[in-house]
Amino acid sequence: MSESSSMVRATGLSKGFGAGLTRVEVIQELDLEVATGEMVAVVGPSGVGKSTLLHLIGLLDRPELGRIVLDGVQTDDLEPDARAELRNCDIGFVFQHHHLLEELDALDNVALPVRIAGEKGRVARDRAAGLLDAVGLSDRASHFPDQLSGGEQQRVSVARALAMRPKLLLADEPTGNLDSANAERLFQLVTELHLKAGLTSIIVTHNEEMARRCDRIFRLARRADLSENVRKI
């Protein structure tokens, strides 16, 4: 894969937590490359470092060793404000728990990244309304997170992740808290939006069936190295 066609290029990533006897090495010397437009599933047992990997790629955390290049941008030396701008403009997150702000209704939650980018409230809300319509929740715009079902919360979360029309979508077990019907519906939604918006997507999941529907699967093993790189079946 050439440098220019890769959206994510991570090399020699290492990350651990704690110090001394309580030190845990979560990721060690991990290499990962995701091409532009790819949908990649990251699978592996709990505690193996899937979320940590996603946080590193999403610039929510810094690796102790290694480099991350996103769409040709070397991110290691970026100042915090520049990292924040990249997160805002180029990366969309969907978390396992919806992580919607409980003080904001669905519309304002989706509009928040647009407001952060400096757009006026009206512009942000108009864009958010379109996205809520796209995820089938236009009638729930004024509902607060605790007035939405789990599936609806996650769909709002997906809409929020796409509010800034990012290049890269990172989803951390987006269906982990949903029943199978809602999980299937959400996964189909993510897949549709991935294709429609021309995204590059990395999805952490425990669901093997869904992982197989992605373009590629990365399996993380206990020793925290990338043990297998399986092409879509």
């Binding site: 915090p80 404000d81 924040a84 997150f93 992580h99 702000l101 952060i116």
Partner: peptide
């Protein structure tokens, strides 16, 4: 704390 982390994830810079 969690909300602040989410906001940072959505693009809130440290100065924001």
């Amino acid at each position: 704390r969690k909300d602040l982390a989410v906001m940072a994830g959505l693009g809130f810079s440290p100065s924001s």
